[in-house]
Design a protein around this nucleic acid. Structure first.
Lengths: 353, 353
DNA sequence: TTGAAAGCGTTACCAG
DNA sequence: CTGGTAACGCTTTCAA
């Protein structure tokens, strides 16, 4: 009846203003059809009591929380940080808040986490979900207002970056520079976006049969890149396309340690354009994935759904080639391998996306 | 009465199990004193109906949401990303979720955002709040379960990194290497953590009167660092302590552009140890601020409060010196300035903390 | 041990 | 235009 908790409730305001709770509610929600004088009295009472409608109670009766969940595999990954930021900023503009959940790359725990967080929200954004396709498809059905970033799910609209086209741009860039023997330092085979990249590799192979592209299994981290560098050297390739910028940085570091000049002897390109890609030595040529936009777009889909609009089709954002100093024309042929050169083993919270 | 929304509610389960809602509630909450057979029947009914207690309704009646808010000035800043991650992971372990809010460095809007998000949660973590001290003090009182990171607020327990001690470690490191003329590329005067650093500068001045430390107003970004580099060169200093890693990276880039060798001619050290500090060229010596731990600690304070424990005093985490390749012994004296060398102007979402 | 009923703080429907 | 009165979905006394 009002004074149960320390908070001032709608009844307190109603009493102070000498009206009913209904009227206070109407005034607080700006609903038309309230006598101006009364409304003013209510507003005065409300502000003098410092009344703030309890969002929880509103949510319960309204059936919406004004909150959406964003689930990411790893908050330390720049890619997901960017998506989270994009969603958060866009949602905030429309008065929505974001509940964030980090699944710690645990594909098995993912579904439970998603369901749990979804229950407290009006919708959920799944960033590069790791769960198996069948699980994902089933889960998504129960999540309804949901948008998936960077993973195709039949039936539900998704927003993704076009990794397939992006890698082709990178390959073409190197081919144009005269490279004819390249290596792709691949990511995890279980990565959906790596599959897209490999599809791009195939596209490219058809279009440019004169360019040879070897694939070496690397991974998604700096250490993986460093480890893969030796294979690159042995292969005699003049250019390497890394799964992502982190891997590229690992390659860069290992190459530098072996005294191999970039891009004079070997060109190195990454993928993603993480915030620090511009600051490596040499600055990294890469394909920029507009993670912020992906997040923003994800929000727009949700906002549209909330507004009762029909779901649109999938959106594919094309990565943008950013040519920097790490790639250049073919000059010399590197000398056939010397050592096994492992390189640094640093670990940074980033990786697959 | 149950079937209003499409969701299955407690009444549906009760009906299916042939018991009352009270019993279902008791079973779902594992409250003792329910007939084993009945309990089993309830559990069966619940799972077969896919029943999930509505967290909102529980929150309303229980008075707790199992959610805390984390408010940061800028989600693009690695420092805050780290704190957010620390809080999120720690809270998740205890079954709490995190609502995130980005104030976009808007000191004026901060208070409203904080109040708003706080209302939906059980507590709030303020990361390096930008609002004026008096506003902060007043706000914090109304927020109650609250912990502030990296900013002192009389009366409420805070967790911070000891920027004052950290910068002294950096200065001592350079002094030990033989440097006698240093410059501090300062951050924004309005930054609380920069004030702490300047206090450290004063401490150091007293302890090492033989070392000269000039202060040049720089800023918190890569561009600020690049711009400040020329002043450093002109000053004839052999070492520069940057406000943070980003500024240090800017200095590094500008120095490299001018052909000044690091650390042979000038040593450069940063602050924070952001994830990429280890990957600059040369790798950056810095003082590591344990942002993840700060976040985790913030959660612990909150968890303790929830458990009814008394608030402890402030916690100060000491930054850890990370010596890498960008700092070295004094060798040569740099030649008195040549050009104004501005340098890159890249912008990265990072900065004050 | 179990159930009925009274809220938790709002909003919305329906009379007046 | 305003005020009762039901919900929203759940937990928790209070009786039985």
């Amino acid at each position: 009846m009002g004074r149960t908790t320390g908070t001032t409730g709608i009844d307190d305001v109603a009493r102070a203003a000498g009206v009913s709770a209904s009227t206070v509610s109407r005034v607080m929600n700006g609903r038309a059809g309230v006598d101006a004088a009364l409304a003013e009295r209510v507003r005065t009472a409300a502000s003098s009591l410092g009344y703030r409608p309890n969002p929880l109670a509103r949510s319960l009766v309204l059936g919406r929380t004004q909150t959406i969940a964003v689930v990411v595999p790893d908050l330390a990954n720049p890619t997901f940080q960017g998506m989270l930021r994009g969603v958060t900023l866009a949602a905030a503009r429309d008065g929505y808040r974001v509940l964030v959940a980090d699944t710690s790359e645990d594909a098995a725990a993912e579904e439970a986490i998603v369901r749990e967080t979804r229950q407290r929200c009006d919708a959920v954004v799944l960033c590069s979900p790791r769960m198996a396709s069948d699980v994902l498809i089933a889960a998504v059905a129960a999540l309804d207002p949901v948008v998936v970033i960077n993973r195709e799910v039949p039936g539900i609209p998704g927003v993704s970056a076009d990794y397939r086209v992006g890698i082709v741009e990178l390959l073409e860039h190197l081919a144009t520079l005269g490279h004819r023997r390249l290596v792709y330092a691949a990511g995890s085979p279980s990565s959906a976006s790596d599959a897209a990249r490999r599809a791009g590799l195939a596209d490219f192979a058809l279009a440019r049969p004169d360019v040879e592209v070897l694939t070496v299994e690397a991974g998604a981290t700096f250490g993986d890149g460093a480890a893969a560098a030796s294979v690159v050297v042995e292969s005699g390739a003049t250019g390497v396309v890394a799964f992502n910028d982190l891997v590229a940085m690992g390659v860069l570091a290992s190459l530098a340690a072996q005294g191999i000049a970039v891009p004079a002897e070997v060109s190195v390109v990454g993928f993603d354009d993480i915030p620090f890609a511009a600051f490596t030595t040499p600055a990294l040529t890469t394909a920029a994935v507009p993670v912020g936009e992906l997040g923003e777009l994800a929000w727009r889909r949700l906002a549209a759904r909330f507004a009762g609009e029909e779901p649109e089709g999938d959106v594919m954002l094309r990565p943008e080639l950013r040519v920097r100093a790490s790639s250049g024309p073919v000059r010399t042929v590197i000398s056939p391998a010397a050592g096994a050169g492992a390189g640094a083993g640093a670990e940074t919270g980033a990786g697959r996306s």
